[in-house]
Design a protein around this nucleic acid. Sequence first.
DNA 1: CTTTTGTTTGACACTTTTGTTAAACAAATA
DNA 2: TATTTGTTTAACAAAAGTGTCAAACAAAAG
Lengths: 198, 198
Amino acid sequence: MATRDTGAEENIKEAAKRIFFVEGKLNATTQDIANEAGVNRTLLNYYFRTREALFDQVYKEALSALSQKMDEVFKAELPFRQKVENIIEVFLEDIITYPFKEIFLISEINSEHAEIKKSNEPENPVFRNFAIEVEEAMKRGEVNRIKDPYHFIINLFSLMAYPVIIRPLNEKLLNFTKEEYDEILKNRKSEIINLLLN
Amino acid sequence: MATRDTGAEENIKEAAKRIFFVEGKLNATTQDIANEAGVNRTLLNYYFRTREALFDQVYKEALSALSQKMDEVFKAELPFRQKVENIIEVFLEDIITYPFKEIFLISEINSEHAEIKKSNEPENPVFRNFAIEVEEAMKRGEVNRIKDPYHFIINLFSLMAYPVIIRPLNEKLLNFTKEEYDEILKNRKSEIINLLLN
DNA sequence: CTTTTGTTTGACACTTTTGTTAAACAAATA
DNA sequence: TATTTGTTTAACAAAAGTGTCAAACAAAAG
């Protein structure tokens, strides 16, 4: 049986991700994506049927990859401080590499199509468990007392993601040059740890 | 001279803002906007010439309104702590009302068109001045020591904006119900103050 | 009430983008 | 080398979206 995989399908998805997550062109045409992938546009329909189906698939893969990565770092058996440092390292790198990924995901969730199932998935205990660890760290005095440990998680991601997402706007409003902003981002990790942990 | 202003032009812009900033439909068609405004689509071309011109104008107005609001609250002659509380109150309300505004702005900045001038505007001293106030507050011990006071500003906006922007994703990944998330947001102000100020 | 001025609309033409089809093509197997 | 299988393409058809125009319309001014 003749079978060969030129990897075209994967290339197309990779190209789409570059366009969406890196360049931030959220309403790229199928032609744009075909160009980026270096293939004929018809091929997109061959593999994915419709434009929406391609978007959906990229969406789903990105979401499940994100979910999986979260599981990994949040479940790790490490002392609290190390775990937090690890989380920051992992996610900050990802966010900086794909600054528009979260915006794309939000857009997709928000858009009509994308047969997004109403989280019929069983509740993931990862965050519930991590919240307990936060509580314990609070008791030990490693983290400042707060009402709800979920705020700790939200704070953590806010402090990592937002500066990257908002970069173009900040460079306008806060008059940062690219170099200055890179410098800011380079210091984020220690900045965040400093703020969240005692 | 016969002159009457039915306010249609303003209505269209308001409709566009609702669609972009509230509903988050970033690639709404001119028809979508006309429907939302309750007018004929041609009217959009009459007033704004092209779709892009409408987008640009909404973009510019939102940006300058944001800029102006920033000036206002950051310049206010208030004790540091009160000023920060004020900033949080003002922006949190705005962000919750228009959760997609910043994403729209980023998208516009990122898009080809939008003859976005490379900030030829003279540098706005507002943040520079506020950064000095942060320094002083650090010396007085009201704020934890950090390397660069600009991180304080970035932290502040991150903690306000991100939880709102990312809401749809968080409700998926962290398994929050709408009610639970509303509760979280309600507590943000005190949470942020607690974290940033001593 | 007629004119003037500016507003609103429906119909049309144009462009962009998407989706389909049939044929050409390339590589592995026999 | 011929066959099979799967890949890639150009050309076409259909759909969606944008922009223009001329005519109808409404309100203020004369």
